[in-house]
Nucleic acid binder design. Structure first.
Lengths: 292, 292
DNA sequence: CTTCTGTCTTTTATCTACAATAGACAGATT
DNA sequence: AATCTGTCTATTGTAGATAAAAGACAGAAG
């Protein structure tokens, strides 16, 4: 195989859902827009729809013949891009599995294990190296630096610098900035989850990422915003395999977020800084506690 | 060609210099250490030396037969790694040439132009993307974000945060830390260059990088240290193609560095901060002036 | 005359192949 | 006993090939 057709399969699945709601599909360019793909792929999907007797397709007419059945969908495993597969597989090895710092990482072995070519693994490692967890020895292997205490401390140090600066910018945002509206939505979600914490605490992780990213964006600084990727990925995977006290931890963070949000909304720099510091402090402690 | 033998050629050239100083070469492992290469490559070099009648090689005896001549060396163009070639070529296009923000970057075209395979170009772009100057549209081209005023402002904002923090750490370094000794050496170099500024001002660039890297290292934070790569590469290439007032600019920076170094050595946090701020301020102004 | 479709070309994502380089091991040498 | 060399194997860096996806353009349809 030269290229996985995951774009096609994923868009096909999403297009099946669109199809469930109408009696005829829109034009090819419009579908492309809607699904975020090129017309080439749109046409591939339409062809397949026709073959599967889902639509009757003649030029501009794309009439729906029947509702999609569950077995019309491609299995979800097939819709993940190779990069996602490699990322998950790799993160499991280094964050969940007992990966010792100093361990060598072998491109070929990794590729064999994941069942892909070396090129993709290599490109993943290059992209991943900016997270500071691995390092390349030229003409030789990669070295795992490990998800250690020092790593967590260095990460949180920068995070705190950046988030404090971003929070300071946030309170100075003009009243008509879209971020305020976004903040309101996020606040409401916090209250929703908190009201039903026992069954919904798992949704916190995603919300956390959204909230902090919103704050970081206020910095209008690409380096600060980009750095948040590192934080997000580390927290995402780390807590995914480390669920001790998840309910309690998330409940506390939700409360802190609410105080933080209120402080931001007050537009008082000192209050915002204080609330931000308090939350970052406890986030840091929680992270450090969970590292052996 | 599967792999360029630049490691071999570069090490060959360096080994020729070693050969000029002795009548017999050390053991293979020792040579490997000295040149930073594996024994396989050492043996390849020794074989070639033998062919070129430079040495008589029999097991442990590697007697020098004659002094190397200029034409024994490989031309320097052949000793640059592919990554270096691609980097230079690319940086010239985007920093020197009139590259408009929003311009599309095409892997295939770039590869053809440089005369290399797409894989290497692709990997370079991935590595380079962390500098915030380009961005990938998945399944499609890269977009040049451009070396604009905003870029410079965002870069310097983070730089200032990081360097202030690092300088604060520096003054707190224990007296026996190797950084102090390094600082003394760097200071001496500053004075040397300043004493003969008219003919040596071009050496500033390299010294500047060394000095600031030393300061950043005091942070003991990999993210801060790694970030300095971005600053270094941007300044390096930018001033390489932008030499207006280079002599004057460098002289001023040298003076500021000396004040900054003295402040660091005083171990007084307030003085260090002040000197650091002053220098960063003028570095920022100089950079912004040079962007249209 | 604007938007759509059919067709064609170009580029990207990925695999495979192979020379350069690194690295391992056993026997030779000091 | 320690270090070195000869030989062999494994991995990396890079090119080239190919299917998937993007994108360009002319003619068709509203």
């Amino acid at each position: 195989m030269a290229k996985q057709n995951t774009v096609f399969k994923d868009a096909y699945n999403r297009c099946l859902k669109l199809l469930a709601d109408t009696s005829s599909l829109p034009s090819e360019p419009e579908l492309g827009q809607l699904l975020g793909i090129s017309r080439t792929t749109v046409r591939a999907i339409l062809s397949r729809f026709e073959e599967a007797q889902l639509i009757a397709w003649d030029k501009r007419k794309k009439n729906v013949l029947r509702q999609p059945r569950p077995d019309d969908y491609f299995p979800t495993e097939e819709t993940d891009s190779l990069a996602e597969i490699i990322e998950r597989s790799f993160m499991r090895r280094i964050l969940a599995g007992g990966a010792e710092p100093g361990m060598q990482i072998n491109e070929l072995e990794l590729a064999r294990e994941i069942g892909t070519g070396t090129t993709s693994v290599r490109e993943f490692l290059i992209r991943f190296s900016r997270f500071g967890l691995i390092e390349k020895r030229p003409n030789s292997h990669w070295v795992l630096k490990g998800f250690t205490r020092e790593f967590a401390l260095e990460l949180t140090e920068v995070r705190e610098m950046f988030e404090l600066r971003s929070a300071a910018r946030f309170v100075a945002l003009p009243a008509d900035h879209a971020a305020w509206e976004e903040l309101t939505k996020i606040e409401a979600l916090h209250r929703d989850i908190l009201a039903d914490i026992d069954s919904r605490y798992r949704e916190f992780s995603e919300l956390d990422e959204k909230f902090h990213l919103l704050v970081h964006r206020a910095s209008s600084n690409r380096f600060i915003v980009d750095f948040y990727d590192i934080i997000a990925i580390v927290f995402h995977y780390h807590y995914q395999w480390n669920k001790t006290n998840a309910r309690q931890r998330n409940a506390r963070a939700l409360e802190e977020h609410l105080a933080y949000i209120e402080a931001l909304r007050s537009q008082d720099p000192a209050r915002a800084e204080q609330a931000c510091r308090r939350h970052l402090q406890s986030a840091r402690e929680t992270l450090l506690q969970s590292i052996p």
